[in-house]
Design a protein around this nucleic acid. Structure first.
Length: 933
RNA sequence: UGGCGCGUAGCUCAGUGGGAGAGCACCACCUUGACACGGUGGGGGUCGUAGGUUCAAUCCCUAUCGCGCCAACCA
């Protein structure tokens, strides 16, 4: 049993508890479930191995941990599998940066990976991974994530690498992976190909240059117009340097302006080549001049257009970021220089007719934010359509469900228009492509094992050269749900945990990751990788902007954890994880939930105080035979009202919390828990319990048991949300036992006494008690009315006064009489007396509608007459307004006729009540005015 | 251009076809035996704007303005 400090100080117990859970094996799942036991599994979206925890991680891991802890408490064989991603470009870039800082190459420039050589650089990166890879996992532990660390995986570890090779080879054999020369996105800075997804469109202010193309005929002779001047076309472009690679000019076939030019040729400015004028309905007549320069090598649309018209492809922009020899005099210039020079030369030759300002989109490399250029290159691709089809069907048929559902639309939109996936990257850090080229026969060999000789011609291994490229990081991530469970071996873990139950992640990686996992899972496992996809909102910075490493605007969750604890951060994220809205994290909220944790802490401390006090009085407070719950259930009808009340209220929280957990509405659960524990348990139940505790005896013991039971259930409900503080508090409670029905096959390990394995409360009406709820609500009504009177009149709490009451019904009378002691304590009233007849003298009147009762307080020596008159006038004003509103409603025939009769009846009753109140208030005010004179 | 989401108290956000809520901030009073990370009371919003449906609209429909995100073949 733990003892509690005087307030909630998370640093004192969080790490210690995590260690206790982990060392006791509490996070471990079993490969095989016990008969009849359900399994529940999730895989963590693997963070970058060298990354640091940011708010996005904190959110997704909090949500996942809540779900996992909930299922574990429900008794499921629960697996939450951890791991990290090698993050090709990101990690390589970090190591490159490091070596650049370290030294200079012989040529005086900073060291690059090429100075080290591939082998040494990769070894260096592995070391970097060993040094930094633990940081993110330790941070996940600080959050409280109950991950099964014994199963931790890394996308480049031996098993996962084998899975990658297996998948690559199989897809190659099936014809779904091919190597081809096509247009791709190229980052000249990172020196690698990128997939379409890794290029981020970005608005840039630029220019719109209008360039003259002169027209010639098939023999190259100028075509003259009616006026004898050579015909010409003006073409607008935002990238004039690409004209070096133009191989056609395109116009719309129906464009009257250009019909006479069909079949003619245009002279490429600066280079003087002639190129055909083609027609294609892709061209927009309205845009620019209606004529389009076609550069198949450096524009995706032009590439397609070129294919349709069999145009030659001229690459003028090289991988090194410079113009190729095909660019003639511009060869060797950087792209930006070439642009300036081209514009200059055009101007000199009078071929530039106009320059406008223009905002257009350029593609930036996701990693380094430099402009990525479309270029022609030989790369490896996944033929995606055959994989996409079943993946679309899986969502259409509901085998996979997205939540919120609206994301399914986004998913379909992308999947229907999906293009082949460029998977090769010109990096060194990653899975090297298992393809070998034979120096002797030139054949390609794709194999699971490194070949010892060429299978085509028998050449020795030394003749074979492995493809230098590595695979896109997302290629290995796509296999994550099954590669981590041992695939391609047929493991027991796969049987038990695949398909996983839920995938929880951010919507920003639906295409990068979710869609690809679905495709690969269906293709290689024959089954969906998960049944539900939960997509959380984006955590943004205070300006509402997306947090990202490259922007440098990340807020460190560790700072918040160190300051306030993991639990307040977790509760904040859960409470704000409402769907359909971005989360703008506010530190105020975290502080508020820290206060909440402290509140719960003190509620439990209150229990201990009362337990000790009873013991001191010599009252035997041991655990009742058969347990507290049974003891309470057996005596339920005879329990005091406040005890029956809190048990009933508690019973109502359970289904609300469960519903939130089931429907991925964690904010609903968090709110219900917050509301109950603070405003019912602490504000009212504990206050109501103080009287019986003071009196001691049987009612005190009964109340102690009730409090013990309520706290136990509350802590169990809270545990998935705030695991640390709930465990610390629960451990402090007496009479705890290990889970009574251990459903986990824990390999003969001793049972652990932990809240983690206590059964999660289930909805069950056993303690529901409407009459107790009504009774306490009425008592609250009286107390609040008196407190309000006190507050409005500025009467100090220490000043007590007698309270008289006139009950409008016998029930109300007996209710107040029965609760007189509680009323005296909580309303701070010296005496309570029933009266009849109208009020008089110096009596103040306080009408209360629930319960129907009129309170009277003698004002003599208590309040300033003017203050009280002010209070009365204020109340009267409100009542009068209310009467007007109700009468207005009741005066409308259509309302009487069409509104539900119960509602009409309710309004009638309300009118009566209000008029009664009004009369009393007016009388009181009249009396007061005679007094005041 | 299309799709989606959001505009509710000073700030951050819940919420509902029958007279608007929380946390923080603010004001007043309280060192009351769990808690000053607290207690009690209070001030504060024509629920973006304009129409419509309805007995009744902050909520449903339409339009409109503003903000954000996503997807796009307008060079």
């Amino acid at each position: 049993m733990r003892s509690l400090g005087k307030s909630f100080e998370p640093v004192e117990f969080e790490s210690e508890l995590y260690k206790f859970w982990e060392e006791s094996g509490c996070f471990e799942a079993d490969d095989q479930s016990v008969p009849g036991q359900k399994s529940f599994s999730m895989v963590i979206p693997p963070p970058n191995v060298t990354g640091v925890l940011h708010m996005g991680h904190a959110l997704t891991n909090t949500i996942q941990d809540i779900l996992v802890r909930w299922h574990r408490m429900k008794g499921d064989n629960t697996l939450w599998l951890p791991g990290t991603d090698h993050a090709g470009i990101a990690t390589q870039a970090q190591v490159e940066k490091q070596i650049a800082k370290e030294g200079k190459a012989p040529n005086g420039k900073p060291l690059t990976r090429h100075d080290l050589g591939r082998e040494a650089f990769v070894a260096r990166t592995w070391k970097w991974k060993e040094d930094h890879g633990k940081e993110i996992t330790n941070q996940l532990k600080r959050l409280g994530s109950s991950l099964d660390w014994k199963r931790e995986r890394f996308t480049m570890d031996e098993g996962l690498s084998a899975a990658v090779r297996e998948v690559f080879v199989r897809l190659y054999e099936e014809g779904l992976i091919y190597r081809g020369e096509r247009i791709i996105n190229w980052c000249p800075r990172c020196q690698t190909a990128l997939s379409d997804l890794e290029v981020i469109p970005n608005e840039r202010k630029g220019n719109f240059w209008h360039i003259v193309y002169k027209i010639v005929d098939g023999e190259g002779k100028p075509v003259l117009g009616a006026d004898g001047v050579q015909e010409q076309l003006v073409i607008a472009t935002t990238r004039p340097e690409t004209l070096l690679g133009d191989t056609a000019v395109a116009v719309h076939p129906e464009d009257e302006r250009y019909k006479h030019l069909h079949g003619k040729r245009a002279v490429l400015p600066l280079l003087g080549r002639t190129i055909p004028i083609i027609t294609d309905s892709y061209v927009d007549k309205e845009f620019g001049s209606g004529a389009l320069k076609v550069t198949p090598a450096h524009d995706f649309n032009d590439y397609d257009l070129g294919k349709r018209h069999n145009l030659p492809v001229v690459s003028v922009m090289g991988k090194d970021g410079r113009i190729t020899p095909a660019g003639g005099p511009y060869s060797g210039m950087k792209f930006v220089e070439a642009r300036e020079q081209v514009v200059l030369n055009l101007r000199e030759q009078g071929l530039l007719v106009k320059t406008e300002d223009h905002v257009h989109k350029v593609g930036l490399c996701q990693r380094c934010e430099n402009v990525a250029e479309p270029i022609i290159s030989k790369q490896w691709f996944v033929k995606i359509e055959p994989l996409a089809k079943p993946a679309i069907a899986a969502v259409e048929t509901g085998k996979i469900q997205f939540s919120p559902k609206s994301w399914e639309k986004t998913y379909f939109e992308w999947m229907y228009n999906i293009r082949d996936w460029c998977i090769s990257r010109q990096l060194w850090w990653g899975h090297q492509i298992p393809a070998w080229y034979c120096g002797r026969c030139q054949e390609v060999t794709v194999a699971r094992e490194n070949p010892e000789k060429c299978p085509h011609c028998g050449a020795r291994a030394s003749e074979l050269r492995q493809d230098e490229d590595v695979l896109d990081t997302w290629f290995s991530s796509a296999l994550w749900p099954f590669s981590t469970l041992g695939w391609p071996s047929k493991t027991q873990a796969l049987q038990t945990f695949y398909p996983t139950s839920i995938l929880e992640t951010g919507f920003d990686i639906i295409f990068f990751w979710v869609a690809r996992m679905i495709m690969m899972g269906l293709h290689f496992m024959g089954e969906v990788p998960f049944e539900k996809v939960y997509l959380h909102a984006m955590v943004r910075d205070e300006k509402g902007e997306k947090m990202s490493k490259s922007k440098g605007n990340v807020i460190d969750p560790l700072v918040l954890i160190n300051q306030h604890g993991a639990d307040p951060l977790r509760f904040t994220l859960a409470a704000m994880a409402g769907q359909g809205r971005d989360i703008k994290l506010s530190v105020d909220r975290v502080e508020g939930y820290r206060a909440y944790c402290n509140k719960i802490w003190n509620a439990v401390k209150f229990f201990h105080l009362q337990l000790d006090a009873l013991k001191e009085k010599g009252v035997a407070v041991t655990e009742p035979e058969g347990g507290v719950e049974r003891w309470l259930l057996e005596r339920r009808p005879r329990l005091a009202a406040h005890n029956r009340w809190i048990l009933s209220r508690l019973e109502r929280v359970i289904p609300t919390v469960e519903k939130g957990l089931e429907n991925f509405e964690l904010n609903e659960s968090a709110q219900a828990l917050y509301e109950f524990s603070w405003h019912e348990l602490c504000d009212w139940y504990i206050e109501l319990s103080k009287l019986p505790f003071r009196e001691g005896g049987e009612k005190a013991v009964e109340t102690l048991y009730t409090l013990r039971y309520s706290l136990d259930v509350l802590l169990r409900l809270l545990h998935p949300f705030v695991p640390f503080v709930s465990e610390a508090l629960w451990q402090s409670l007496p009479w705890n036992k290990p889970a009574s029905t251990p459903t986990r096959a824990r390999g003969g390990k001793p049972e652990v006494l932990t809240l983690m394995f206590q059964a999660y409360p289930r909805p069950n009406p056993k303690f529901l008690d409407e009459s107790a709820e009504k009774e306490i609500a009425a008592i609250r009504g009286v107390i609040e009315a008196v407190r309000n009177f006190r507050g409005e009149n500025n009467i100090a709490p220490r000043v007590e006064f007698a309270l008289r009451y006139k009950a409008a019904s016998p029930e109300a009378a007996s209710l107040i009489e029965g609760a007189s002691e509680q009323l005296r304590v909580l309303a701070r009233v010296s005496a309570l007396e029933a009266v009849s007849g109208p009020g008089g003298g110096t009596e103040a009147v306080i009408p209360v509608s629930n319960p129907p009762v009129e309170l009277r307080i003698d004002l003599k020596g208590l309040v300033n007459v003017e203050e009280e008159a002010k209070r009365l006038r204020k109340e009267l004003e409100k009542v009068t307004g209310d009467i007007q509103f109700v009468r207005n409603k009741l005066g409308q025939e259509t309302f009487i006729a069409k509104a539900p009769p119960q509602l009409v009846e309710k309004e009638r009753k309300r009118e009566q009540e209000l008029v009664g109140k009004q009369t009393e208030l007016e009388a009181a005010l009249a009396r007061l005015s005679t007094l005041g004179g």
